[in-house]
């Protein structure tokens, strides 16, 4: 790499997460290209909060996200499908409790 290339490293992909209201979790909204963290944050603000969507932004380099392998979805997720007893639907909720 060119030695004088200090402040402009190569462009990379970032994932953007926005928290729209206090108390909610940050939610993935998309991805963008930027040269570094500061510019990624700026670009996220410019691209994803134009209509007042955000209170807080996270940007994460896409390559740092560890993802499950789609070809392993049978092993990973299918065993859970036959275990209906894990859903909390077998309790009788007394009427006085109302909506939980």
């Amino acid at each position: 790499m060119n030695k004088t290339l200090k402040a402009t490293p190569p462009v990379q992909l970032w994932e953007v997460f926005i928290r729209s209201r206090s108390g909610l979790a940050h939610k993935h909204v998309g991805s963008l290209h930027a040269e570094d963290a500061e510019l990624a944050l700026q670009a996220a603000r410019n691209l994803f909060t134009r209509r007042g969507e955000g209170l807080s932004i996270w940007v994460v380099p896409s390559h740092l996200i560890v993802a499950s392998d789609p070809s392993e979805k049978g092993m990973l997720f299918e065993p859970a499908l036959s275990k209906a007893y894990r859903h909390p639907t077998f309790y009788n909720v007394p009427e006085e409790v109302g909506h939980m």
Partner: peptide, 22 residues
Amino acid sequence: AYHLRYTSEWVIRLGDGTPKSH
């Protein structure tokens, strides 16, 4: 205030970038 922040970051990166961008 945001315009200043946005342009400052780019002035720094382009000025202190490649010989051509400088």
